[in-house]
Design a protein around this nucleic acid. Structure first.
Lengths: 197, 197, 197, 197
DNA sequence: TATGAATGAGGCTTCATTCAT
DNA sequence: AATGAATGAAGCCTCATTCAT
């Protein structure tokens, strides 16, 4: 019976992980199709083979699923962004590396959203941590003399705004390198000017 | 009889206009508190003294109310932005005037939003028209030689992203002039650099 | 002022009658289009130029409008049916006259109903009176020796059933004379057989 | 585990079947009391111990419930009617058997309807199939020489009209045999006359 | 742990009707 | 008498969540 149990437990573990992934994959698809607001837990369940009750063994709400998805994305993209920034030896590399990594990620990972769906951004802990990390990297770069010493909070905000706005262009098919060049030049020139003002 | 009718009509229309305003005001408050997605028509109605059915004499959905709010805002702020841009005689004036008008409007008109609520943007015709106008103004400024001839679509996106992102700082209490200076310097330097790349 | 008042009163009378007719005409059309069950008072009002409140100066519900329509129809067709029956000098004339008058009326007065609409029959007082009259005419015809002395209640029911069922064929385009011949022969032969059983 | 599952499934399905029957029984009662048009889904739910949402696990609308009821009735009565007709070796048997089966069924299965409620007929597939079957049986009987060769469509309509109209008498307490005799004689004589005209 | 039917709160909307003008 | 906006009851239906199996 011990053997049986441990075997069963092993199977169960596997199934647990699989079910979680099943739900996440279904949710990613449904969110992309309907948008977050119009998606219901039922929609997610219906996109799987699982029973409605099973959902609640893994998540407590669609918000939790959404955060898990965002966290997974952030976990996937953050190290790359961070790496691009800490290894930069010039301001140009700092910006180019960051934007290229971000736009590249967006180009690869975005799914077609419903056309008229609302645009929104939910600040999950991981996403917030991502922005905090960006700011820390900026401050570190300023300390290293890579970037001029300007207001790091505002620069973070500006970078974020431009990155997300151009990301829409990328989703619409724009070229990653062109977006990267544009954003890099904008911030290179912009931070140069800010350092003198 | 004519007098009576016109008097009656006047009274009626006054009440109607008042009710419309009542609903819009309630909706603005509830949207700010709960965010658009979590707001229901019932929430809006409950924030007024009106009966549930009355809502439908004025709007067909929360989306319609939202668009009416956005349109009203856009109508209020667009002429000012447009004016600031067409009267600019230098790139600096172009950016400074635009950002100052926008941040000033945001500082005066924003309502307290729930801190972690989703951020979203609904593209009502008026809002879209506002972006189209921005782009046309940019292109006109390029034609006038005020701005260097760079990709107007990308510049529009970047301006939009920075403006909305810094607007959050303004809502959080940041100084309008400081935000204006920062954004202006960023884009002055940025567009200068882009024109040479 | 007296003159003025009486003139006004005259106008009003006229308007009153007109409004009633307006509502009845609109109701007839809407009932035909939507069926009785799916028709609402609002639908009827919307099919007129009148205000919603005005409806209640003339009728208290759609049921009342419906009865008024049925009564008007019954009033139009009953005298003809009655006349056809009392003037009959043979059983054949009795049936032929009745059916021809009924089918002819149906052919002229039916309006296209929604295809999948429910079929229903509301027994307004006038309609009930119409059936009572049929039965009386039947009994009178039996007394005159025109019809054999069989169960008048059952004969009334059978005539009614056949008449309404064949009326559907008439509405679908069947020939009035053919339906009349068929029904007449059926009841001539049928009553003959019943008198011998 | 198999045992457990099948047991559980058995229990579940039992409850499901019971709930379905509960809803159907409640609907039959409410339809009879209020008539179809005035019945709401809520009325049906209120006539059970079930929660409002439960209704929608079984039916999507009152129309669906109604069709289920009609279909069940049609399924119950059609084979008997069909059997009575195909086994008939004379016109008299054809009519007698049909009417007796139908009136007998009505006498046993009818529920008390509100007296002045509308009478209506919804043409569910099963009901339509019932009429089609009647017509086919009639045509087959004509082919066999049992019935004279007259217009089968009109005969079907006439039989239907008389059957439903006399069924009202049965519901009101009339004797099944007497109704059967009356209807049979009517159609025996009637078809005889029609064959000669 | 998985299942999936039951639950009932709560969303949306329409409607008949009232009543101030 | 006519108007038409306001009313709120009441319909419809979906949903997140529970819980017996």
């Amino acid at each position: 019976m011990d053997v049986k149990r441990s075997y069963a437990a092993g199977r169960r573990e596997l199934t647990k992980a699989q079910n979680r992934e099943t739900i996440l994959a279904a949710a990613a698809q449904v969110f992309a199709q309907l948008g977050f607001a119009r998606t219901t837990v039922r929609d997610i369940i219906r996109a799987t083979n699982l029973a409605s009750g099973t959902f609640y063994n893994y998540f407590n709400s669609k918000e939790e699923v959404y955060q898990a998805l965002r966290d997974a994305q952030a976990l996937a993209v953050r190290p790359r962004l961070h790496q691009a920034r800490v290894s930069a030896v010039s301001a140009e590399e700092f910006f180019t590396g960051s934007f290229r990594a971000f736009f590249g990620f967006v180009a690869k990972n975005h799914t077609e959203a419903a056309p008229a769906s609302e645009r929104f951004r939910m600040d999950s802990p991981q996403v917030q941590a991502g922005f905090a990390e960006l700011r820390q990297d900026i401050e570190a770069a300023m300390a290293r003399g890579l970037l001029p010493a300007i207001d790091a909070a505002l620069l973070t905000a500006a970078l974020t705004g431009v990155a997300f706005e151009l990301a829409e262009k990328v989703k619409a098919g724009a070229n990653v390198e062109e977006m990267t060049r544009f954003a890099t030049a904008l911030f290179l020139g912009g931070t140069g000017a800010l350092s003198k003002s």
